[in-house]
């Protein structure tokens, strides 16, 4: 059984949808949130895993998408799926100038620059009281235009599942597309990619924009889920958190980061109920993973398969 088989992954996503209909209410809510984080981690994997651009500022597009969707839902009661897609599109638009600057660098400089942009977002929403509600955020975000079922707990869960399934297919299709393979070539050897006629910066910008689009969608779904947005969405710990999900699950595999999101979210819940110092326990666990399973959960699950770096 190949864990990266897209049919299997879609079956799992569908199963998570069905699970939401039978679980107790609070468990369904937790699962919905976890699936939104799966989408968020998936979006970061395109950058970190597929393009090997380690972003430490993915809270930026996440928060931006959330605020844009919240604004549209509050101001105009746009139907929620429209607001989510529009938020994704605007985040992608924002990614063009931001990415244009970020992809001129790589490595630590890229991480710092992406972090700087997320911090900038934090500062803007914090200060721009009139529009963003400042430190109070924007409460009471409506799930507009969905009808009674979809706006409810189970319905919203299924909506998230549908977005996650579509996002996964999009990312999976991109990675194997002709352009996605060129991204892989740029990742593997910049000099070779140039000799083939590809401009590494332009190619990186493409994947940057796609990653921001999906992160914006994830953030927008979160705004509708929590019915509330606040500057914390932009906080650097959010960026660190999603990066841990990607590395924990196995960067560059698409499935792995989604598993990483589920695993981290689950463990945080279990551990925080058990002990005050759960952060410490998670930190230790992360260290163990990096040392003993450097290719993450996926690498560990597929240890018996021949090594392949691509999803």
């Amino acid at each position: 059984m190949n864990l990266s088989d897209p049919r299997l992954v879609l079956a799992f996503i569908a199963a998570a949808g069905a699970l939401g209909l039978v679980l107790p209410a609070h468990a369904t809510t937790l699962l919905t949130e976890a699936l939104i984080l799966c989408l968020f981690a998936l979006s970061l994997d395109l950058l970190v895993g597929h393009a090997r651009l380690t972003s430490f500022g993915h809270a930026g597009p996440w928060g931006f998408g959330a605020y844009v969707a919240a604004g549209m839902l509050l101001a105009w009661q746009v139907p929620l799926p429209v607001a989510v897609l529009a938020a994704g599109a605007l985040t992608a638009l924002l990614a063009i100038p931001v990415g244009w600057l970020c992809v001129r660098t790589g490595g630590v400089a890229f991480a710092m620059l992406s972090l700087a942009f997320a911090q900038l977002g934090y500062a803007v929403v914090f200060k721009w009281n009139a529009v963003t509600g400042g430190s109070d955020g924007l409460p009471g975000v409506p799930r507009a235009g969905l009808g009674e079922f979809l706006a409810g707990r189970e319905g919203y869960h299924l909506l998230v599942v549908a977005f996650l399934g579509a996002a996964y297919l999009l990312a999976w299709g991109f990675v194997r597309s002709p352009l996605g393979r060129v991204v892989a070539a740029v990742r593997e050897n910049e000099q070779r990619a140039e000799a083939l006629g590809h401009d590494p910066r332009r190619i990186r910008l493409v994947v940057f924009v796609l990653s921001y689009f999906l992160a914006g969608v994830a953030g927008a779904l979160y705004a509708g889920f929590a019915r509330y947005v606040s500057p914390e969405l932009f906080f650097w710990t959010v960026s660190g958190h999603v990066l841990v999900m990607v590395v924990l699950g196995g960067a560059g595999t698409l499935v792995g980061p989604m598993l990483g999101a589920l695993a981290l979210f689950y463990m945080e819940h279990q551990l925080s109920a058990l002990t005050e110092s759960w952060g410490l326990a998670l930190g230790l666990l992360f260290i163990l993973v990096v040392i003993f399973a450097p290719r993450g959960l996926m690498g560990w699950l597929q240890a018996w398969r021949p090594r392949r770096r691509d999803a």
Binding site: R181, A184, R309
Partner: peptide
């Protein structure tokens, strides 16, 4: 200067 993480045939296909 080849792409080490891609298969030989994919290097040439590129």
């Amino acid at each position: 200067a080849i792409c080490p993480g891609l298969s030989a045939v994919e290097n040439v296909r590129l």
